[in-house]
Write a protein that binds this DNA or RNA. Structure first.
Lengths: 253, 253
DNA sequence: CTGGGTCCTCACGTCACGTGAGGTGCAAGC
DNA sequence: GCTTGCACCTCACGTGACGTGAGGACCCAG
């Protein structure tokens, strides 16, 4: 019914030193001591440790953790709710970061340059107006940048030619499909959306349907991606987006 | 085309001191210095800083960040891929933590006690066999624990009586519904699933359909939850799970 | 020519522990 | 009965990633 430092450290996944430290600063004082002066942790101590580790995991400094835990206002249910909120909030920001990384990967794949504030928007909380003017200056030169991109990569020249041939072939066929007014949710369009996905997966990065769907949203929401696809045929970006969504739905069934 | 420490600190969301530190340890040495000895950061420096902050955000110590960035093997695409993988992995573990918290909330709501290893499983990497024997000893006494739970909470005695009356009424009606062989996806069952969800939201914690669905999965996967519901009527747990899923699907359309 | 703002370089402080050093209590094996 | 081993103890200094002044240089505006 009571545990030693070693045991607690063992199943809580912390070091003995950490428990000593928490004792020193009064954050987690064990319920009692053995005859020999050894720390003895009871169930209540384990419970408290669990909460401590939780808040620590989310980046709270230890004194704030202490304040949270020693708040006489909060009942256990409120704690669980609070933790769930913190977790979901954290998950949300990480998902935004992941989305920004996807954005960057797609931009790189298509040789589109990013503005400096876009590079940092991964970390949130930006003043979007602040550096707006100089963002303008940075346009143009995209083609040279894209070319340097290509050279910087690992592929050989022959690889690049094969890849480019695939892209050209695909875009020609998809443009034809759009001008023939094929429906986006039809079999031919979905098949070409799937081909698009496999192309990315084969040459650039693993792109499951879920992610492909998020990319599709970018193709219409971001002007540069939209311009890239619409240059193949007018309305192609929107058409491709719907085809990708239909294809993803077909996959997840 | 080149920025001062203050500017960089501004739009990267770090302090000037941090940039000084990165210069000191050679992690991010600015491209040049002005006449007066002031640091001048170029575009390449910003790019590198973005990567540094990213890896730092994910908990890498700075020397490892340096090792990653100065690895001559890695091309930029590989970096983006790697970052995306790290992010999705982190998101996944956080989602597991959130699930464990939901588990704990539901257990507390129904007065079910958790074993000590369950309390820590939020943090993953446990040897599931290790403390198995003593887990046994901890059973029984659940009712007393549940009672103490009730007293510890914020509600008044009258509130508890009202709440319990609601529960009793609901379980009686749901048991009748099951014995009458009503289909789980039928309107009456879905309505009672919705009532169940609203009950939790009103008395305990906000429970959107998404979360309700995850709880339903626990009702059949965890023996204790299953026993709780099956004691109302045989097969009720499974029936309720399907009703909750049907109700959630109805909600998201 | 005097502020005010931004930059500079020491250099010590802080937080959450890590890492020995040197010693104690106790059960098992020789 | 003794030593060996193990898990524990208490100092106490080290470390990583900065925070926080102290004291001084540069530069533009009023």
């Amino acid at each position: 019914m009571s545990y030693s430092v070693g045991q607690v450290a063992g199943f809580a996944g912390v070091t003995v030193r950490t428990l000593h430290h928490y004792d020193e600063i009064g954050l987690l004082v064990p319920g009692g001591r053995s005859h020999a002066g050894h720390r003895r942790y009871g169930d209540a101590d384990l419970d408290r440790l669990q909460k401590i580790l939780f808040y620590r995991e989310l980046g709270f400094p230890l004194d704030e953790v202490a304040a949270l835990l020693d708040d006489p206002e909060a009942d256990p249910r409120a704690h669980l709710r609070r933790r769930h909120e913190l977790l979901t909030a954290r998950i949300e920001t990480l998902q935004k970061m992941a989305a920004a990384v996807e954005h960057a990967m797609e931009a790189r794949r298509m040789g589109i340059n990013l503005t400096p504030e876009e590079r940092f928007e991964v970390f949130g909380d930006k003043d979007p107006e602040q550096y707006a003017e100089e963002a303008e200056q940075r346009w143009g030169g995209t083609e040279a940048y894209a070319e340097s991109q290509r050279r910087a990569a690992r592929y050989t020249k022959a690889d690049w030619q094969r890849m480019k041939a695939e892209v050209d072939d695909w875009s020609e066929r998809y443009a034809a499909l759009v001008t023939a007014a094929e429906p986006p949710a039809g079999e031919p369009a979905m098949d070409m959306a799937e081909e698009h996905r496999r192309h990315i997966s084969a040459w650039f990065y693993d792109c499951p349907p879920e992610m492909h769907r998020r990319l599709a949203a970018m193709y219409v929401s971001d002007e540069r991606f939209k311009a890239f696809y619409d240059s193949m045929a007018p309305g192609l970006a929107e058409h491709l987006k719907e085809a990708i969504e239909a294809n993803a739905a077909r996959h997840t069934v």
